[in-house]
Simulated assay, not measured.
Amino acid sequence: MLALIAGTGALPDELVARLPERPLVCAMEGFEPDHLSVDRAFPLEQLGGFIADLKARGVSGICMAGAVGRPAIDPGRIDAATLPLVPTLQQAILSGDDGALRAVIGIFEDAGLTVHAAHELAPDILPPLGCLTEAQPSEGDLTDADRGAGIVRAMSAADVGQACVISRGQALAIEGIYGTAWMLQSLTRRPDAGGGVLFKAPKPDQDRRADLPAIGPDTATGAVAAGLSGIVIEKGGVIVLERDRVIAECDRLGLFLLVRERAV
């Protein structure tokens, strides 16, 4: 049996719609999915008890999909099964995103559960290679994308962000803890004539079983508001949520969406 630990956003809904049968839908308290009904909610302080319950129900695999935050741990809520996990959880909360997810994945694996990636269960959730829109990137846009790939690689060393904005070879913004939408919004009053690309890709050494980057319709509108010419994402590394709607929105706004091979 598969358990889906669902967070917020569109990904859990899209994943469940693609699965042959409905998984056991679970959620951490405070980060429940927007639309799916939840079969089992749990506080982080009772993660150990939650894992024991999953195994008692016959769950052998889990998938984590959707956005979650980092809640503070309330010592008074910690159950006996979670007590041995506290040092690992505390370290995870203080780590970067990839470090935190590796720690949580390790906890599930140590308990004998297999951790599946969303795109492993539903491969068509990832877009195909090529330009998916009517608008096409210029040579300058492709050069900016190369520059963006190098910047994301450099960011990965510090476990910070999965996206940046490049224009004419210059980094205008890099993604931090507040995410892509906030980064794009910060550029809506940029002083230059506009142009440039949003580049998004997973960190080169990231564990891709969780927190694979994603874009959606709001990314397209945010990119246009920031004065950009297009969006470039890495093949096999970025999920496009509501893909048909994203492509239609890009076409309406004159934005290109390019899926390129992973930079070497």
Rank of each mutant, 00 (worst) to 15 (best):
R40H: 02
A103C: 04
L101C: 14
E234P: 01
I247P: 11
A81H: 08
F50S: 00
E175T: 12
P202V: 00
K235F: 08
V68P: 08
A225S: 15
T8G: 10
D39C: 12
V232I: 11
V152I: 15
P75S: 02
V152S: 04
D39G: 13
D251G: 12
L121N: 01
G69V: 04
L19A: 07
L15G: 06
Q91E: 03
L44Q: 05
P123M: 11
L184Y: 13
V68M: 15
T221L: 15
F42I: 01
T188F: 07
D251R: 11
A41H: 02
R40C: 05
L83K: 01
E120L: 03
E175V: 10
D207C: 06
Q170Y: 13
D159W: 04
T8K: 15
F50E: 03
E45W: 03
D159H: 08
A118E: 02
L241G: 00
G196M: 05
R153L: 08
D97S: 13
I105G: 13
L2W: 07
P12M: 02
L253W: 12
R70C: 05
E45P: 02
R189C: 08
I174Q: 15
V197L: 01
D74W: 06
E120Q: 13
L255G: 07
H116A: 08
G76R: 06
R40V: 04
D13I: 09
K200D: 04
I51A: 05
G48R: 03
S37T: 15
A181C: 06
P33G: 02
V197Y: 00
T180E: 14
Q90N: 14
L36D: 02
L257I: 07
V165S: 08
V259C: 07
L11W: 00
P213Y: 01
G195R: 04
S167M: 12
L101D: 14
C131H: 05
R147Q: 13
G7P: 02
P217E: 15
T180W: 07
P43F: 00
E261H: 08
R147D: 05
K203I: 13
G148R: 04
A3T: 03
A100L: 14
P43E: 10
G61D: 14
L129F: 14
G169T: 07
I215D: 09
D218C: 10
A248G: 15
L11D: 04
D53S: 15
E120D: 14
A181V: 05
